[in-house]
Amino acid sequence: MDYSHLAVVLDLSPGQWEGCSEELGLPSFLSQLLAFLNAHIALRDENTLAVFAALPGKSTMLYSSIDPPEQPSDMDPNAYPPFRQLDRAVVASIAGELDAPSEEPVALVGAMSKALCYMNRLALGQTALAEPRMLVLSVSPDQPADYIPIMNSIFSAQKLKATIDACQIYGPHTVFLQQAAHLTGGSYLHLDRRDALLQYLIMAFLPPPSIRRILAVPTQDKIDFRAACFCHKNIIDVGFVCSVCLSIFCQPVPVCSTCRTKFPIKTLKRLNAARPLPPASSPGPAPLSRPPGSANGLKH
């Protein structure tokens, strides 16, 4: 029982890929990715694969080995049919999606949610989906607005017993993907040498969870646990947590925007007085407890 379902989420933000085509362009990225996907299928005949793309403003499924696209009638005696079919389908669907330039932010969370929904659908069909996991190949920085949907994705992944692996190919560390990998038992990798992408992918992300138990897979020595506030979607160091629904705010508020709880004026004043920054002008009540150090701590 060492076969697994792998969902790969590709971040195909045109803006980001344009900016970094010197070290690793999109064509060379794709050829290395295809080799990795073929490797996953090669490991076991029963291994299944689904590829999702996050594009500006939308997300789409590029390929699924469970529900493969129509097989072309011509065959190559030198290629294993499933590999050929996979390569063609992925390349064709990426080419079809990439032509429309757009300024909208890339819908990474949308693609992740789709991948999770797809896993869930597969799990419903059979008694047990063997070791489902997800690999997110990201090039974009965090979008603070994505905080809540990402957290929800993490929770659904935990419920599906799926691990989320994340690989940040370009740019700074992403806080959210680090947390996703940490909370689901996956690994997060920030590439230093982009020309060795394939080797990174194979060594860190190819082994299914059952093998990883005996391998020294890269883990994070420090994880950025910061959260984004619900009011302005800023990533914050110190925040205020609603004592009823645990919503996070960057400043004390009189009424919780999520659960509509009203907070006493006295507490709000006290909290405002205790803020390290110059206090905001909004006076008012709040039993908004201020967790020491991090917004994730809870205190009533």
Binding site: A35, P77, N78, A79, Y80, P81, F83
Partner: peptide
């Protein structure tokens, strides 16, 4: 096998 190519025809000639 992984990348296709070559001319051995080892996957069967249709």
């Amino acid at each position: 096998a992984m990348t296709g190519g070559g001319s051995s025809g080892s996957f069967g000639v249709p």
